[in-house]
């Protein structure tokens, strides 16, 4: 057995109000941290902008899914009706963008929905069974009456002492370093 029984994950601080969290988040952004996160029991309007978050990238997956669906529908109809088994139905052409449009359209929606759902899973790195932030004793209260800022060790600006004192400076309570135990 080695001496190291855990991995240092992040420095965390709790806050008692949305305003404190909001102000602190602005200072963390100003300081230049990049790998950090806020936890809140309620939606805090404007927090994304305060944290300097860009727009979500999920819509790109939606668009890619939609375009794929549209052309998949087209390919299905072309292959079946024009190429593999040409059949005249109702005096309509073998292939045309008009009569099978509902097929294109439905597949566009279906694949766009798949793109959205799985794109979201992919970007959030879901599914996962556990997360080191759960080790913080007050983490459960961020679903109730506490707000939390977590600055990860992976952040290039992270420094044990400096980050902890910085979090205390911006008004953080019960500042501590989260460690993920290795079993």
């Amino acid at each position: 057995m080695s001496d190291i029984m855990d991995i240092k994950y992040a420095a965390a601080a709790t806050f008692s109000s949305a305003k404190e969290l909001y102000d602190a988040a602005g200072k963390v952004k100003e300081k230049g941290y990049s790998n950090w996160e806020c936890f809140s029991p309620i939606p805090v309007h404007g927090l994304d902008a305060q944290m300097g978050y860009a727009r979500s990238k999920v819509p790109r997956f939606t668009l890619a899914g939609g375009v794929t669906g549209f052309f998949t529908g087209m390919l299905i109809v072309w292959f079946m009706n024009e190429f593999d088994y040409p059949l005249i139905v109702g005096g309509k052409p073998y292939f045309s963008p008009i009569y099978p449009f509902p097929v294109f359209y439905e597949l566009t929606i279906l694949f766009a929905a798949f793109g959205t759902l799985f794109g979201m899973f992919f970007l959030n790195r879901l599914p996962r069974h556990n997360h080191p932030v759960f080790e913080h004793p007050d983490f459960g209260r961020t679903g109730d009456d506490k707000f939390m800022i977590v600055i990860e060790v992976e952040d290039p600006k992270y420094d044990d002492e400096e980050t902890v004192s910085f979090l205390q400076e911006v008004g953080g309570q019960s500042v501590q370093i989260i460690r993920e135990p290795i079993v």
């Binding site: 109702g90 005096g91 309509k92 008009i98 009569y99 449009f101 509902p102």
Partner: peptide, 12 residues
């Protein structure tokens, strides 16, 4: 608009 066209096109 497409539905209107589509139904009339199909019924012919």
């Amino acid at each position: 608009s497409f539905s209107q066209y589509f139904l009339i096109y199909s019924a012919n």
